[in-house]
Design a protein around this nucleic acid. Sequence first.
DNA 1: TGTTGAGTGTAACATTTGTCACCATGATCG
DNA 2: CGATCATGGTGACAAATGTTACACTCAACA
Lengths: 212, 212
Amino acid sequence: MDNTAYFEAIFEPDLLQEINRFGVLKHFKEGDIIMDYGKYIRMMPMVIKGTLKVLKKDETGKEILLYYLSSNESCSMAYSCCLEAKKSEVKAIAEEDVDLIAIPHTKLDEWLCKYPSWKNYIMRSFNLRFLELLKSIESIAFHKLDDRLISYLKEKQRLSGSSVIRVSHYLIADDLATSRVVISRLLRQLENDGRIILYRNEIKLLSSFDQA
Amino acid sequence: MDNTAYFEAIFEPDLLQEINRFGVLKHFKEGDIIMDYGKYIRMMPMVIKGTLKVLKKDETGKEILLYYLSSNESCSMAYSCCLEAKKSEVKAIAEEDVDLIAIPHTKLDEWLCKYPSWKNYIMRSFNLRFLELLKSIESIAFHKLDDRLISYLKEKQRLSGSSVIRVSHYLIADDLATSRVVISRLLRQLENDGRIILYRNEIKLLSSFDQA
DNA sequence: TGTTGAGTGTAACATTTGTCACCATGATCG
DNA sequence: CGATCATGGTGACAAATGTTACACTCAACA
């Protein structure tokens, strides 16, 4: 196991041992479905490496991106579902290759009382999830598609660490719950404004992109 | 204190005593602001009586309704904020007269370990809040305004227990983050379809309203 | 080499939602 | 009674987004 430095910094040794003993290390490849609608949730995932995205769909099957989960983050929504063995309302897909530790829900509860650092971690995770969902609502409710597209591209840039983004117009349209034609139209506009350059399956953000 | 039967049913006597000792009973009148943007949160509210609504606003001040909180429900978003003494991202207004018990955050933590029924209550609350936010996202992202208006009216009907809803077009427009003219237009359409009757400050849902 | 499929550009049009302007009505209060 | 204000009805138009249809390019591959 690598990349656990963050956890070593915030958890006491006893807890780390328990995580090692009871947590189940899982690997997913880019595109793998980590959690799907309607499946029962019995574990909470802690992401060690990589990024996954969390989606919600409507009755007709159209999906929208809720947020990303990266290294050291957890999906506490999963935790709150464990209690009553609820079915999932969301889907999670590996955006890149992902390593995560799945913690069984019996331990989640036990550690809550036993380790203050665990309780803090969980509470911070709850708070982060709420904030992400609120951000998502704000974006959908108050911002026009062109703004949302720009935010989307910036987030991709941040996650990949590169200003060249490998993604098709179709995929963007799916994540923003609109159609490909609309996205192509807006991207073309951004290109005309000299903020990006479009290639096949690739978008290059220019230095002028960050304006406004 | 009245209307605490629900809590008596799910909490053990010891915990009820503690709630009585450390919880602060507060009253709000219809329209009172219970929590506002940017204020620090140090308590978690448990609603005893009445209904309050929770809003989020954008930079320009436009607000949108997130969800309602009614009897026996708690805002666990507040709880998760307590840990780091965060500022509120949302506003809460009394929809009708409200009685609630405010629990100081030190006790929140303490009881989590001490009383399993409290932990269950809190976890269920977290889960409910997540589900409400997801419902809100689904509504905004996937449904047209006419559907959202219908859902809004149904929710009002459910909360008031009456098919006569006292509300102005302006208020609906605020809650749905749109303009009065748009709402008036859609309501007129619903009236033409024979599903509602419009009066001043009042909307009557007909029996045909529940269709489709 | 030719075929196939995914990705993209683009026009034309429909629908939904937002905005502005103006008027009408009913409530309140001096 | 008359002034004022909140509420809501309506037309006209603008802007944003959705939809359909079709052409073109590129990569993969038989």
